[in-house]
Every structure is written in C-alpha cells, then in structure tokens.
Design a protein around this nucleic acid. Structure first.
Lengths: 356, 356
DNA sequence: CCTCGTTATCGAATCGATTCGACAACCCAC
DNA sequence: GTGGGTTGTCGAATCGATTCGATAACGAGG
C-alpha cells in the first residue's frame, strides 16, 4: 500500500545519485545557483529528465524554508456574493497582480456568514493573510492567525497593533461628497448604507443598531455625511447589491415631494445604481427631482451613459498595496500602513434640489 | 538571524515534553484520536495552552501526509476579466462550496494571457488542479502538472486520458436553441462567438481561424447551430463581456431589413445582453424585428424585466461536480467524468421573424 | 496465581528537501 | 614551490510533524 497518491515519484536524492553528485549539489542546481559548474548542472538536469523528475517537491521545500508561497485572502461572505461586488473583484485583481509577479498564489478563504472557515485555517499552510472585504474588529479568525504567527494585512480593518492597515479616507471622502450636495442647496438627505454587520438585517438604523456596526468603512461613510449635515436618516441594506439598493431607494423616495429626501447618498455605486432604478421606477427625474450619489468609482457596465456622482477610490492600488504589505511581512519586514487618497467625481446624477 | 518569520514558536515536541508524554501521543491528541485517554488529552491540551501552541504546523503535516489541503483553480485570463463573467463566478462558488465543506482551500491561478503562471505551479504545493475556465487542449501547464503527479479535473476541457472531464452538452443544447429559432421561421441567423482563443482577435471568423479554436465550448456551440442551419456567419468577440457583444451586435444589425439577420445567437448571456443593447441603440424592437438568444441561463441583474431566451446550464452543479471529482482524485480514487444536462428556456427575446 | 485480551502510550523511521560551514582542487603570482 | 584566493562539491543537521508496530499496564477469567 502506497503512502502517497503517486507512489514511485523520484526524489532529489535519486536524481543526485544518478548524476553522481551529492543531494546538496542537486538542490543547488534546481535553485539555479551560480555556484554550480555548468557541466555538473547539465549532468543533474539530464538525470532529472531521465527519471522524469519535475523539480523539488514544493511541500518539502516549504517545510525547510518555512514558507509556502501561498497567501490567503479572507472574503467575509460567500464567494458568490462577494464577486457580485465590483470593488471586491477589483481589489482581488490588484492583489493577484502583485502576488503573481512574485510567484505567490492567492488562496480564497470564504466563510459562510457567521463562522468563517476556521477548519481551513487550521489545516492549510499560509504565509500571510489579507482581510480583503471583512474588516471585523473582533473576527475569531484573527486570533487563530495570531496564535499561528501568520502575519495579517487588513484592508479597511480590522484595526490592531499587529495588523498592517491598508486604508482610505472614507470619512473625509464622504464629507466632501456631502458638502457638494449641501453647496448645491440640499438640506434633506438620506443615506442608503451597506450592511452594518452580516446578519441579514435591513431597514432604518437606530442608535442601538448603530452601536453595533462591524465594518469600519460603513461607519466612516455615515460619519462623513454627519460631519456636514448632522444626524441624517440611515437605511441599512442586507447586502451590497443593486436589488437591495433599489428596494431601499423605493422606501425612501416613495413619498410626497415636500417630505422625501432631495438627495440620496448611497454608500456604494452598486447601491446607487439600485437607487437610480428605484427613482426611474417611481418616475422621478435624476437629478432634477432627486440627486443620487454613490461611492467607489466602480465603472458599472449597466449604468450605461449615466455618469454617477461618486467618490472615486483607487481600488486596484489598494489591492496592490495590500499584496505588497503581505509580501513585506513574509520577508520579515515591518511595513507601514497605507492611507490612499479618494477624490470626488461629479457626474450627471447630482444637481440642485427641486424648487418647491 | 532567525530562520523563520516567527522564531520561537513552540513545536509539538515541546508540548509533549511539557505534558510529560511522547510526541506520538501529543500528535494523536491533536488528531482527536479516540485511543488517547481523556486525562492525557487534557494534560496535553493544557500544556499546549500554556505554551501558546496553536496546533500542528500545517506545512510539516502536509509533508508527512503528502497532502496540503489546497486545490488550484486555473483561470485562463486575468482575474478581473474572469470575474466579470457570471458563469465563472458561479462555477467557482460551486467549487468552494464543496471544498469548504472538506476544509480544503481553493487557490486561484490566474495567468496573464499567454503564459499562465508557471512559476507558481513550480513553487506552490497543490493536491489537485481544476481547469476552471480555460479548456485549452495543449495548455503547457497541463504537462507541468502531469510531471508533478498532480491530478487534474477539466471543466469543459482539456480532453485527455488522465484528466477527469466535467462537461455539458454544448452542441445539443445549442442545436435545440437553433431549432427553436428555425421553427419560429428564421432562416437568416448569425452567431456572436466568445473568443476562439485568447489573442484579442475580433471579427468575422474564416476557415483558418475556425481551425485554430482553442475552447471546446466555443466550437461546440458553433457546431450546434450548424447542425440546424448549416454554415452561418460567425462574429468573434475579443472577450466575453457585454461591451464586446454590443459592438458585435451593432456590426451585425446595422443594415437594411432584408439583409441583416433576423436572429442573433450569442454564445453567452453576457454577449446576448450586449446584442440587446445594440438592438436598442439601433432602434430595433426585440423580438419583433430581431430575435436575440444566449447561453448559460445566468440571471444578469442588468437585464431588468427582459427574459432572455437561452440555454440553461447548471453552472453551480458543474462547480460542485468538479470539486467532488478533485476530492476523489486526491483520495486516490479514479472518478468518472460527468456530463450535465442543459435545457432550453424560451423567454421574451425570441419570436417569429418580421414579415418583409 | 497465571494467562489472555484490551487499552493507552511510546520509539523510531520517514516525508523530501535546504543550507551552512568545511574541504578539496585549482589557478595565479611571487 | 609555497601561500593565498577562488570555485565547485559535499556532509550532516534540520524543518515539524505522522504513523506503525511494539510494549507496558491492567483487569478479568480460569
């Protein structure tokens, strides 16, 4: 009975023996060391070819080196939902761009809601972990990683001494956006928020709920609005998808002109797209009867010619920065956190409020 | 200078010593073996807690076991483009669903076009690989995996003796779709094809190009149409995205009523969505002036109320089947390939051709 | 009291490489 | 010809666990 799936696979030692050199030399050969003589190298390579040896076993090499060349990315939600979010996708793309260049692989860790895949963490070798879209302050996975000595990078959280933070200025960016609306003359605005935590809740946010917000970006994007307008009504969605934005939008905008908000601040472009759909469904002209703004600067394909007024964040740069930080941590460095800039982009969905 | 990122991390041996047991017993304890006495177990666990030992090192365990608990998924394109494709996303979701249940992780292998990340393959330990969206017949990565003894599952390709194939009947499905159009009375149809190979080419497909098609599904979905209509014009897109579908659709539909096709068969719902946009842009009513059909049965959010006539494939089941096959291969079994059924779904985008 | 059968624990081999310091061989110059 | 500096190769320790067969302890039955 064989121990392995592939029983008779040749080892480096076998290759060395066949080539008439020591295992050390054979190892050096495959590491492309300049210290091995060309003639010897050819002999080893020839022996390897004859034996069908495909190079050193990655697992054994990993053990010796103490590294695997794999970095894990935590996705809070199930994969399917995370990938509906263009920001998450672009972030991951930025990460793989850097990682791929170093021959490092990205492992997806998706946790169905509550309990993130903890068993995976225990079993799977990781050099570092990136909290990609789930900056929970008290994620249990964080403790596991800590105990294991796996360095952690957080994209917009969690905040901790031993976590390198890649951040954007959500609050100031949103404040800028809010100021734009205020300067246009808006006084009655409402916020359509991304989920405060992942429990399927939707609806108006009260103080109690507000106190239990899990995500830093969500909190900061509310605070940015309040910096300008003071307390405003916040409507929470259950998921960051257009359909949720639409139902929230309908709830907000389905009322008489003197009562409904003259501007809706969605916390993401995806939600804003939903709000736009809601406005269209209610027969409200944008921006003449209602202004709609978003956040992210994702170029959503289904917006068509509409240019959403939004706060543009450098999502791909965020991904690249996260990956670079992870690589640095693996190399034993202690990289600084990064704060990336955001910019207001005024489009065609914001304008002065309607005159009564 | 420390060898590792975390120098003084305790080992299983240290825990065993502290608990006054042998390493074997400590190992058995963490493997939750029933053969270890409860009192001993508690002693070991206590020692582990005191030392801050988080459990056996996954790398070392991997070496001994010969497995890592990581399965690689090959994405032909860059992540960003692959994840614009709802089918790819759903496929991956199905894969992670099964894998996660076994505590196995999914590693993304994205190759920038031509050369897929070969260096990653050499360095990263993998138990098995799934060709998720890139069924190239002659992918160089396949040879590397073979040489390494890594078992491979192919989703719609590549076809090889040692690759377990998870397939759908693209040809028969498309033929059914084509027959539906023929029965409605269509005689002049055109195909908007996904990329035949990844080289950025777009435009009419001639025989030479046709001979060099890389993807099985693309080929089969053309053949299915020809089974019903005989040779038809095929317009290739450079990428499976809506914008490409739109420009292809405009090229096909921008002509006098007697010349342009009365039905456009897009090879994916995403492309079909683009063709619908093109039709709308040209002021053509669907299905009265032109019928548009797709493939996949993906529920695209931005289609709104439009019900696309399409061939529904069980994408998530495909993902789950692929993952199950991979797990079986890792377990040393020799699973059979799987052929999943597709079904025609008639929506509101197909109808009789206009009367001249 | 001795033996047999469990049950819990241990020893030791093994997984397949990497790497550092030592060492031999060789070249050149003095 | 000897000393010093390269250059190329080798030995041996190590990475941290898993696992099988062996052994000790112990209770029960004859």
């Amino acid at each position: 009975m064989a121990h392995h799936s592939a029983p008779g696979r040749p080892t480096l030692a076998a290759v060395a023996a066949r080539a008439g050199v020591s295992p050390s030399t054979a190892s050096l050969t495959f590491a492309a060391s300049p210290r091995v003589a060309p003639a010897t190298r050819d002999r080893v390579l020839a022996a390897a070819a004859e034996l069908g040896y495909a190079g050193p076993d990655p697992i054994a090499a990993s053990l010796r080196r103490g590294r695997t060349g794999v970095i894990g990315a935590f996705i809070g939600e199930r994969l399917l939902y995370a990938f509906r979010d263009p920001v998450a996708v672009q972030l991951l793309d930025g990460i793989t761009e850097v990682l791929g260049g170093h021959g490092v692989g990205l492992l997806l860790l998706a946790g169905d809601a509550g309990r993130p895949a903890a068993d995976q963490l225990v079993r799977i070798p990781l050099d570092a972990a990136i909290f990609a879209t789930c900056g929970l302050e008290d994620d249990p996975a964080l403790d596991l990683l800590r105990a294991r000595g796996v360095p952690v990078v957080g994209v917009e959280g969690p905040v901790a001494d031993d976590v390198v933070l890649i951040d954007i200025d959500d609050r100031a960016g949103t404040a800028q956006l809010a100021a734009h609306l205020r300067d246009l003359g808006h006084r009655r605005v409402a916020v359509v928020a991304m989920p405060l935590r992942l429990d399927g809740t939707r609806g108006p946010v009260d103080a109690a709920r507000r106190a239990r917000v899990h995500y830093r970006d969500v909190r900061h994007r509310v605070e940015g609005v309040e910096d300008v307008f003071g307390p405003v009504p916040v409507l929470e969605t259950a998921s960051n998808v257009a359909a949720e934005g639409e139902s929230a939008g309908r709830a907000l905008l389905d009322g008489p002109a003197g009562v409904r908000p003259t501007a809706v601040i969605a916390q993401s472009d995806v939600l804003a797209a939903g709000v736009l759909q809601a406005a269209a469904g209610l027969g409200l002209a944008v921006p003449d009867e209602v202004s709609v703004v978003g956040f992210d600067g994702a170029d959503l394909p289904w917006l068509g010619a509409v240019q959403l007024t939004t706060v543009v964040q450098p999502t791909d740069a965020k991904g690249r920065a996260a990956a670079r930080a992870a690589m640095a941590l693996v190399a034993g460095e202690r990289p600084d956190g990064v704060l990336l800039p955001v910019t207001l982009r005024v489009g065609t969905t914001s304008g002065p409020p309607p005159v009564p």
